[in-house]
């Protein structure tokens, strides 16, 4: 409970700064309009205007809150304008991509740890794969996939998987290699087979590493799904909300999509943290 005060202080400072920036950034537009209308704005009127514009450069927090409320609580979730519906579109691609990415990552890690050839031949490609600027090539991938008949959720999930397998490989390789020399020697004195070394030692030892990397991976998978939605146009999802928002200068729509994405990412990471705690507790490794 001791941290409540500092946390609240930071929050208040953050919100206050946000409002201040809203004034600074939105003021030119307010003055512009007042000038064209031939009126003079008092300071209070200016501030009030900057916090209530329809298409502000930087919307004030309460405007975003109102927009989020309007598009979630006040709409049927099946409506195409509902943020919940868009969230579901993005999340379903996220889940699919995350599952593929995690599975691929774990499989690659197992291969890399067990085969020196794979370590030397595959690892450089895995690293190289992540130097590709995905934002730039995502439209290309979507188009290529579209041409071979893959579209919608699967295409988006492919980008999610592409981004999210990487932290899983890296974390899982580290985890599977975390047993030290002594532990491996110990198993050797019992004449353990490779499968036993894997099942009894490497795999359980890698669990904390796996979950840590899964947290990173799930957040990236969400980003991947959003990126995958940008080029597909208005088929739904946070990405398409952001895109159409920016077409029409609807900053409130962009920002509410950003808030929605952030909330989803937080929830996903939190969910994995919860599973992590349950699993490690059952394994007796909770600290």
């Amino acid at each position: 409970m001791k941290c409540v005060v500092p946390v609240l202080t930071v929050l208040v400072v953050f919100v206050a700064l946000w409002y201040a920036f809203a004034v600074v950034l939105n003021a030119p537009w307010a003055r512009d309009r007042a000038e064209r209308a031939g009126t003079e704005l008092s300071f209070t009127a200016l501030v009030a205007d900057t916090w209530a514009q329809e298409k502000p450069l930087l919307p004030a927090p309460h405007q975003i809150a109102a927009e989020v409320w309007h598009t979630t609580a006040e709409m049927r979730i099946t409506s195409k304008r509902s943020l919940v519906w868009h969230a579901w579109v993005t999340l379903s691609a996220t889940f699919a991509g995350f599952a593929m990415g995690a599975a691929l990552g774990i499989l690659l890690a197992v291969g890399i740890v067990h085969s020196r050839v794979m370590d030397l031949s595959v690892m450089p490609w895995i690293i190289a794969s992540q130097t590709v600027p995905i934002l730039a090539v995502a439209p290309m991938i979507i188009v290529v996939l579209y041409n071979i008949g893959v579209q919608g959720l699967v295409a988006k999930a492919a980008i999610s998987a592409y981004l999210s397998f990487f932290p899983v490989v890296v974390g899982m390789v580290k985890g599977l290699r975390s047993p030290d020399r002594m532990q491996l020697d110990q198993l050797h004195t019992w004449s353990a087979s490779r499968t036993q070394v894997f099942g009894k030692l490497r795999l359980p030892a890698s669990m904390p590493y796996l979950f840590t990397s899964l947290k990173v991976a799930v957040a990236i998978a969400l980003v991947g799904a959003i990126i995958g939605e940008l080029p597909t146009g208005a088929q739904g999802g946070f990405g398409s909300r952001m895109l159409s928002g920016s077409y029409y200068g609807q900053t409130l729509i962009i920002w509410s999509a950003l808030v929605g994405a952030a909330v989803c990412a937080g929830a996903l990471v939190g969910l994995i943290g919860l599973v992590q705690r349950l699993v490690l507790k059952r394994m007796g490794m909770a600290t």
Partner: peptide, 30 residues
Amino acid sequence: ARAYGYVFQAAGLYPWRTIGGNIRLPLEIM
């Protein structure tokens, strides 16, 4: 032939196994 048991400088018990589980480990492997 399981002629020897080796005790290392560090106990090297698996944190995810109970003491009983750790002692069963070589039994399972063998």
